[in-house]
């Protein structure tokens, strides 16, 4: 469904991504493990068209999208929920969500139905729908960010560090919601430092270090791998 081949990205002289190749099939939940600065966010920004690639190809549904505009990529069904959430802090929760459906603005009815499903997934957002997004707690803002991404009707959802800075209980809620979204058929690419929790819900995972994929495998393989346990799980 989504297949990256030889993705290379430079910031000036610095090579942030080095020939990254990976794939995600329909309905899969694929986790990207890696430390801060390993290249996870750069990878997602490159897929979304917000960073210019030096080389490589991104094929989505058998179509090359690597040179497309960010708005076309969203419209084609790859939606990115970024690290740091990037909400519109002064706008209400409801307006943030509706702007998530910007590329589907001609189908207002579909978006109205979808916003009810987002409220079903995160009932607390319904209570806070008229509050400015910036006034919410970190966990609630993360839910707005995921909800906003869902409003873009993703076939592939890129989630960048959704658990960053959240309390453990909230992390579990967020991951449960991600699992639920995935169970409804959305392909999920999830970047996480919180390796143990992320691997619990993953089908497969890649490990990225200094812009390179250094390991890949299914959940059990990675959970049992000694070097992964040492580096990312701490047990």
């Amino acid at each position: 469904m989504l297949r990256l081949d030889g993705l290379t990205l430079h910031y000036g002289q610095f090579r942030a991504l080095d020939r990254v190749s990976l794939h995600a099939g329909p309905g899969e939940l694929v986790v990207m493990l890696g430390a801060n600065g390993a290249g996870k966010s750069s990878l997602f920004l490159a897929i979304s068209g917000l960073r210019k690639l030096s080389a490589g190809s991104i094929r989505f549904n058998e179509r090359e999208v690597a040179r497309d505009k960010p708005s076309d990529i969203v419209a084609s069904g790859i939606v990115h929920c970024p690290e740091g959430r990037k909400l519109f802090p002064g706008m209400s929760v409801a307006k943030n969500l509706m702007l998530g459906a910007y590329v589907h603005r001609r189908d207002r009815r579909g978006s109205d139905a979808l916003i009810d499903r987002v409220f079903g997934l995160f009932p607390m957002l319904h209570d806070k729908r008229n509050d400015p997004a910036g006034s919410l707690s970190g966990g609630q803002q993360q839910m707005v960010a995921i909800g906003r991404a869902l409003m873009g009707r993703p076939q592939v959802l890129l989630l960048d560090e959704p658990s960053l800075g959240l309390a453990p209980l909230v992390v579990r809620q967020v991951l449960a919601a991600i699992k639920a979204i995935n169970a409804e058929g959305t392909t999920v690419l999830l970047a996480e430092q919180n390796a143990y929790a992320a691997l619990q819900i993953a089908d497969r995972a890649y490990v990225i270090e200094s812009g390179r994929i250094v390991m890949e495998g299914d959940r059990q393989t990675l959970l049992n791998d000694e070097s992964i346990r040492r580096a990312y799980i701490g047990a």
């Binding site: 979304s48 917000l50 960010p70 708005s71 969203v74 419209a75 939606v79 990115h80 929920c81 970024p82 959430r85 990037k86 909400l87 519109f88 802090p89 002064g90 706008m91 307006k95 509706m98 702007l99 998530g100 910007y102 590329v103 906003r148 873009g152």
Partner: peptide, 18 residues
């Protein structure tokens, strides 16, 4: 709204397809 969205978060606006 797209104008305000871009003023409040440029990257967030790009990511919803603005």
């Amino acid at each position: 709204s797209t104008i305000i969205a871009m003023a409040q978060d440029r990257e967030g606006a790009a990511l919803v397809g603005i």
